[in-house]
Amino acid sequence: MTSALNTPLSRRSLFVTGVLGLATATTAATIAPASAAEQEWTEEFMTRPETREGFAIDAMDDWQVENAKFVIAVVTGHDLGEEAATIALATAIVESWLYNYEPAVDADSGGLFQQRPSMGWGSYDEVRHKKLAIEAFLGVGEHAAAPGLLQAAPDYASWDVGAVAQLVQGSAHPERYGQQVAAARTLWDRYADDVEPYTD
């Protein structure tokens, strides 16, 4: 990870700091949320080894909650709203259970969206850099050559969420995105009102 990816991004944002290099950790129990006044976003982001434990919205750990909030923050920071956030959240649930995976777990893929450097989504570090990965998915990341949401479907709000997520991702299992739409909408309803748009 380059030094540019390790610097705090904002001290006004209202979220807990993660720790780089926790790929060997098996729990986030030791990471206690700070009070709202002390919370901030950094790109010293929380990582986990891959698991196939599934996703249960009412059993999310701190890692998953903070990553869901950050997706919402970045989406709204680009003046995109509920539909874009729902698509991004449903995709990240399917691809990573809302964990920011550090190692390559499927060919050269990694990060929240399991983006592949070999497919134009950015470098090894960039697909694991949460803000850059979200921006690449949305199609607002200048570092990525692959078409994101805004390029693939400028009228995404009129699309079925699962279909437009598949259009961006090109998954071998396209049916999985639609299965997580209800969870994604619940996350938006649960957290959007308390998350400041992230613009840094």
Rank of each mutant, 00 (worst) to 15 (best):
M1S: 15
N6Q: 14
N6T: 12
T7Y: 06
P8T: 12
S10R: 08
S13E: 10
S13I: 14
F15V: 06
V16S: 07
T17F: 04
L20P: 00
L20N: 00
L20M: 05
G21P: 08
T24C: 01
A25D: 11
A25E: 15
A25V: 01
T27L: 07
A29T: 14
A29L: 13
A29M: 08
P33Q: 07
P33C: 09
P33R: 03
A34N: 05
A34S: 09
A36D: 10
A37M: 02
A37G: 04
E38G: 02
E38Y: 00
T42R: 01
E43S: 08
E43H: 03
R48K: 10
R48T: 06
E50I: 12
T51P: 09
F55A: 06
I57Q: 00
A59H: 11
W63V: 08
Q64T: 02
V65Y: 01
N67D: 01
N67L: 04
N67S: 02
A68N: 06
A68H: 08
V71M: 07
I72P: 06
I72V: 00
V74W: 03
V74S: 07
V74T: 01
V75R: 02
T76E: 11
E82D: 12
E82W: 01
T86Y: 06
T86H: 04
T91Y: 05
V94W: 04
V94T: 10
V94Y: 00
L98A: 13
L98R: 05
Y99I: 06
N100S: 08
N100H: 08
N100K: 08
Y101R: 10
Y101V: 13
P103G: 08
P103A: 03
A104Y: 13
D106V: 11
D108Q: 08
G110P: 02
F113K: 06
R116K: 15
P117Y: 09
P117N: 10
M119S: 15
G120K: 05
W121S: 11
W121G: 11
G122F: 03
G122N: 08
D125C: 02
V127F: 09
L132D: 00
L132Y: 11
I134F: 07
E135N: 10
V140E: 00
E142T: 09
E142K: 04
H143F: 03
H143S: 09
A145R: 12
A146G: 09
P147D: 07
P147V: 04
L149H: 07
L150A: 05
Q151V: 15
Q151S: 14
A152N: 10
Y156P: 07
A157K: 15
A157S: 15
S158G: 15
W159G: 12
A163H: 12
V164E: 07
V164M: 10
A165R: 09
A165S: 15
Q166C: 13
V168L: 09
G170V: 13
S171M: 13
R176W: 12
Y177K: 07
Y177I: 02
G178M: 06
Q180F: 13
A182P: 00
A183I: 01
A184S: 03
R185A: 04
R185Y: 04
T186E: 15
L187D: 01
L187F: 09
D189F: 00
D189T: 12
R190W: 05
A192N: 09
D193T: 14
V195S: 13
V195E: 04
P197K: 04
Y198M: 15
T199A: 12
D200E: 13
